[in-house]
Design a protein around this nucleic acid. Sequence first.
DNA 1: TTGATATTTCTAGAATCATGGAAATCAAAA
DNA 2: TTTTGATTTCCATGATTCTAGAAATATCAA
Lengths: 118, 118
Amino acid sequence: MEIKNAVTALAALAQESRLDIFRLLVRAGTEGIAAGQIAQSLALAPATLSFHLNQLRGAGLIAMRRDGRSLIYSADYTAMNALLAYLTEECCQGAPDACGLALCDGASLVTPRKGSRA
Amino acid sequence: MEIKNAVTALAALAQESRLDIFRLLVRAGTEGIAAGQIAQSLALAPATLSFHLNQLRGAGLIAMRRDGRSLIYSADYTAMNALLAYLTEECCQGAPDACGLALCDGASLVTPRKGSRA
DNA sequence: TTGATATTTCTAGAATCATGGAAATCAAAA
DNA sequence: TTTTGATTTCCATGATTCTAGAAATATCAA
């Protein structure tokens, strides 16, 4: 991941409505949620929601698919993982106990996604 | 963690210079780095660096201590972990294979450790 | 077709943010 | 106590972002 992508992703998440939206989608899983339902869940004006969904999409954090009249949005877990990995890269070098992050013990934060896990 | 804290932290990281600074400190470990050295490493004007360090500090992502004439900055791993945990909370419910994140297997992203104030 | 529903694009003003020069502060050394 | 060094605060300017009304677009149902 390049820094510009990371900044774009972080900026996308650095807004209350968008963070709410993203976390809603993260919880929802790969099935996703229709825009209308998101708007209802979070009490957002349609235009406002659309703007925020676009930001998240532009940042590569969520995906969209159409289902009839509805547009279904879902979290992109691969992108999320890449972002987390970028943030924690080479963390607390020389003092693995310091950070308390699983990653720091030499384990991988992101398990290779071939259906297997470390 | 409350959403406002998360947004503040994400906003702090959503800027190229600040993300560079933070990752530098994450790599550096608990020992930290003096402001002057950061400025030199990243080729930032003193006033600009100071502004960004303040943002990161206000977001609770980094700590500061004085050593002689120098101010030493270091990453706050506890805060970082809290942010990561917030982002991945209850992720991909019902389809643990989908997200590829260690957390999703029921494991904890953050290993509890003594002295942790999260 | 026509009508209803779901969602997006366009737009513009208000609010927030980044940059860096100059001056100020704080700690150490002479 | 004067000077040097490290860093911060102040400030103005330019750039970016958020919000939501109104109009446009896309899909389905009758």
